[in-house]
Design a protein around this nucleic acid. Sequence first.
DNA 1: TTGTAAGCGTTATCAC
DNA 2: GTGATAACGCTTACAA
Lengths: 322, 322
Amino acid sequence: MATIKDVAKLAHVSVATVSRVINQKGYVNSETKEMVLEAIHELNYVPNELARSLFQKKSSIIAVLVPHLTSFYFAELLEIIEDLTLQYDYRLMVCNSHDDPKKEDQYLKIFDQYNIDGLILIANTHRIEDYKKLDIPIIEIDHKLTDDIPSITSNNFLGGKLAAEKLIKGGCKKIIHFRGPSDLVIVRERTEGFKSALEEKEIYNFSYDLEFKTPSQDDIENVIQSNLDCDGIFCDSDYMAIMAIQALQRAGKRIPQDVQIIGFDNIEMAEHLKPKLTTISQNRKEIGSFAVTSLMKLINKEELEEFHRKIDVELIARDTTK
Amino acid sequence: MATIKDVAKLAHVSVATVSRVINQKGYVNSETKEMVLEAIHELNYVPNELARSLFQKKSSIIAVLVPHLTSFYFAELLEIIEDLTLQYDYRLMVCNSHDDPKKEDQYLKIFDQYNIDGLILIANTHRIEDYKKLDIPIIEIDHKLTDDIPSITSNNFLGGKLAAEKLIKGGCKKIIHFRGPSDLVIVRERTEGFKSALEEKEIYNFSYDLEFKTPSQDDIENVIQSNLDCDGIFCDSDYMAIMAIQALQRAGKRIPQDVQIIGFDNIEMAEHLKPKLTTISQNRKEIGSFAVTSLMKLINKEELEEFHRKIDVELIARDTTK
DNA sequence: TTGTAAGCGTTATCAC
DNA sequence: GTGATAACGCTTACAA
């Protein structure tokens, strides 16, 4: 691997001059510049980012902490984030916490060691104070853990409300809400939005907690079997909805005639299913790009015009509702 | 951020001694050691990996190049790789080529700049020579692009063969093979295995090319509509199979009575579908761990006992076949 | 306009 | 056992 010294030697100049050429800083004669450029080309030289980072105390690496990789929602979000990060000429370190405190510990240390320039928190965490101690820009997605860290989330209350309203309009009288773990704020907000629309209406309803990553097929089956008279289902993810649809089909229910069902996320697959899934769409593109651009602003010490951003969700009516 | 100098000062020793303590190299009096450890604790000191890397010309970062993040197969594989990488105390840089030569270019440069220690190639590439020039250990997954780079792939020929045999045994007389892009070696191998079992049998069959990432729903629909007399379908991914099942249901076909169908990958969802999907299972765990452990061996200049590994696939018979 | 040299935070070699 | 010190590859005052 050629170094800046090799280039300097070949171009018969000092390393300082080479550095100036590379960074387009300071004055340098255009002829000298030519020579240097030639030498760089000749030697196939690329500056060592590690050395650069060491000097500048800035790694051009940002990290994203996710709870897992195997859901469409996260994967699609991650693709958007990765792409934009690269466009800003930063690298992305993907950190999978796996909801495992040990892995979180490891990564927390790594963030320090590598002079990570910024952090996007998608995973839920109880160690927000430790992250703050890192003293680097942070953006939270889907969680507003504390007031002084900028965040972006979907309007989950609205999501729950829209779903309930749609089912009410469809004439449902008994609704099941298959939701995520109710200790998550987003889940509570969706539940509140959902209940808010149901208030004072004579509609029986209840919420049932499931895991987001691996919703229990058995639980869904059991709940549906014990409530065969239900005529509406709202799920906190499209994946749950897919599983619920199958349970309903096994129970001989017709969709949407007997039971109407609404998912959440609007994963790509949702419109390819049969029946096509009605769902609450989260604007991943907006979420991902707000996260990255805000982080870049913070890294460049710019002000954020919006500290806590809430993105409206949208009901996509398809074939699983009337 | 405290540096080694701060620690040295606080412990009243030289930086050399601190370094010895940190790295547990060379002799150091146990009392001095105590003092140093105490100072480290006091200052919350963590060694700067960037400086370390610079000196050692080794970043403890490995990169994985993937074509996209949004398929279960890749996501699950990636989770395994990420986890293992961290266990070896390396960091993972996830690079999404997105089948975009420009992004590949960018990453190629980054690999050089950051002294990446090793590379796992999952994405297909036409620039294998450029990767070789990096002069770092490389492992290929799912592609054996060249003889001198170690690789691991599923036994795709076997996969195609098993699928065909199962359909033959089930009495199929006209079989469609929805496959991936036929310029991929894995796709050609599956096709060959598939045809090999069909040879000399009087079974009409043909292969139809689709994209892995976004198989065209319309194409699948059209092909099935134009071949309503087909009674067997083999798909190169479970995702394609899910879409084919829906097309069949729209066409009023019963599965498996009228048409039998077999997928590929065995994604988690496969056994939660209705009907449960018969599929060819790829051993992701084995693939991921072979890739990472082999890469670690190469990084440590150890020999590989197996240069090109082929992992047997397995037919998981469920409800979409007789 | 260019070169010299100090410094970024480490590790390793060599004296003592 | 321990401490100077050079080196890793780069950037940036400061001098020339």
